[in-house]
């Protein structure tokens, strides 16, 4: 379900660090390095390019929580962020507004976001990759992040009570000067299952072979197919609603319109 974010690895854009005194934005490159959907975990690096205090680009490693409502909800519950802070930041994303009312109730625990076209995340920087901690920068805060599956853009807001509020992160996926999207991939090796023997209870008689291919079944177009039944029921519902509407407008039942007397029961002469 998150395949577009698993495929797109490189992003670049800016982080707005303006305060009242000065107007400033850093160029930022982000690389997503690993995703573990089962645990709602992702990680990567972030490179800040024109940082005034540093002579080289500053690279940090961050770990992220995907708000999948199973592992993580919209409520952070740590890193000094209160639920009010959470809501205040999340509502800055327009795509969050349909979820707001439910999130206010339970942090979004009951929402199903598996097919939502946006992915909400929190990114927390863990360590500096290429500089020491004395570089004059802080990684105390964390980012509220929203990834759009449709156009592959990332928006985020940095939260750190001690930094200027709502520093905006805006990233687009990079394509290395190509006309199109190119993807590479890696795969980490797992422990192979240790050999465990499995023997069928019943042996096949001699000379008999299992079929090499499973027979394929083509869904029929005619007959009692799912589509036909669905269409039948749709037509039925339309007809039923139609008769109600007719009755509402003409104030006469459909039988009356046809000319059948109503209101006398079955009127069987016994």
């Amino acid at each position: 379900m998150f395949s577009s974010i698993s495929l797109l690895q490189g992003f670049s854009g800016t982080q707005n660090v303006s305060s009242q005194q000065k107007d400033e934005a850093w160029r930022v490159n982000v690389q997503i390095q690993g995703i573990d959907h089962y645990h709602g975990y992702l990680c990567g690096t972030m490179e800040a390019l024109n940082v005034p205090m540093a002579d080289t680009p500053v690279v940090t490693f961050w770990e992220g929580e995907i708000v999948d409502t199973k592992n993580y909800t919209f409520f952070t519950g740590k890193w000094g962020a209160t639920t009010e802070d959470d809501i205040k930041h999340w509502t800055k994303f327009p795509s969050f507004s349909p979820l707001l009312s439910q999130v206010k109730v339970d942090g979004g625990k009951t929402l199903d976001l598996s097919n939502y076209p946006h992915i909400f995340m929190r990114w927390k920087e863990q360590y500096f990759v290429n500089v020491g901690t004395d570089c004059g920068l802080t990684i105390a805060g964390f980012y509220y992040v929203c990834f759009s599956c449709s156009d592959g853009s990332i928006n985020g807001f940095y939260y750190d009570p001690n930094s200027s509020p709502f520093q905006k992160l805006k990233l687009k996926s990079t394509n290395d000067g190509r006309s199109g999207f190119s993807f590479s991939s890696y795969e980490l090796q797992k422990t192979q299952k240790r050999a465990s023997f499995k023997i069928q209870a019943a042996k096949l008689p001699a000379g008999m072979e299992l079929p090499k291919q499973q027979p394929k079944f083509n869904a029929p177009f005619l007959g009692f197919t799912k589509t036909a039944e669905i269409w039948n029921s749709r037509a039925c519902m339309i007809g039923l609603i139609g008769t109600f509407i007719v009755e509402l407008i003409l104030n006469k039942g459909i039988l009356q319109i046809i000319g059948v007397d109503v209101g006398k029961g079955l009127d069987i002469p016994l």
């Binding site: 390095q33 690993g34 990680c43 490693f61 863990q126 990759v129 980490l188 090796q189």
Partner: peptide
């Protein structure tokens, strides 16, 4: 052990 992306990245 080297399945850790965090340590690979470092």
């Amino acid at each position: 052990i080297s399945r850790s992306v965090k340590n690979l990245s470092a």
